[in-house]
């Protein structure tokens, strides 16, 4: 779902660039001298994993493919602030080294595919995790799935605000195809969270990796 340049109008991409820079700066300030040492190798490993996994497009419907976003996954394992920085590293590298996503649209891609999961999806996961123990896996899957669908709707709104395409048809098309792509997100997120949970169950929730502020 990487936006190239040209799809968004200057006011829209500029606003999203500002939002991305502001949020990243906020996360840096909140983490400074509080990030737990244990989160550092996780950030590196998860960043590398998300980058590699995003290269693997999975066929989802006739002539259409999708790939992992990863924001909910990373946030559930290192917390929202460290996840935001990790995801930003993914999109900055994709844009600058591999020309995946536009340079002006870099902030839009960070917001759409990063912050949507590391902050929005993470908050939803916290809410869903309050349910009974048997529903925990479902909560992870659901938060990851919903993040992809919500992101596709957000992209439609940005395209409409930019005057690129009317909201109605693009919303229907984007949400339709991404409700299928989201199933991949849910499955991969759940699989990796369970893998890490087996290795280190005590630190499943990213928040416990951060010392009290």
């Amino acid at each position: 779902m990487h936006l190239p340049d040209g799809f968004l109008s200057p006011p829209v991409w500029a606003a999203l660039d500002l939002l991305a820079v502001g949020t990243i700066a906020g996360c840096v300030l909140r983490l400074k001298n509080t990030l737990a040492d244990a989160a550092v190798p996780r950030m590196g490993m998860l960043g590398a994993f998300v980058f590699a996994a995003q290269m693997v497009n999975v066929p989802v419907a006739a002539g259409t493919s999708g790939h992992l976003l990863g924001g909910v996954l990373v946030a559930s394992l290192v917390g929202p602030e460290a996840a935001t920085l990790t995801m930003a590293a993914v999109f900055i590298t994709q844009c600058l080294l591999f020309q995946d996503g536009g340079l002006l649209a870099l902030g839009a891609n960070v917001v759409n595919m990063g912050l949507s999961g590391t902050i929005g999806g993470w908050l939803l996961l916290r809410l869903l995790r309050m349910g009974p123990a048997w529903s925990r896996d479902l909560a992870v899957f659901g938060a990851a799935w919903f993040t992809v669908v919500a992101t596709s709707a957000l992209v439609s709104v940005e395209l409409a605000l930019s005057g690129t395409v009317p909201l109605g048809p693009s919303l229907i098309a984007m949400v339709g195809v991404h409700s299928v792509i989201g199933l991949v997100e849910g499955a991969v997120t759940l699989a990796v969270v369970r893998f890490v949970a087996r290795a280190r169950p005590a630190t499943l929730d990213g928040t416990v990796l951060q010392v009290a502020r």
Partner: peptide, 8 residues
């Protein structure tokens, strides 16, 4: 990886 276009 599939070379089909992505959702967007």
């Amino acid at each position: 990886a599939s070379s089909s276009p992505d959702g967007l």
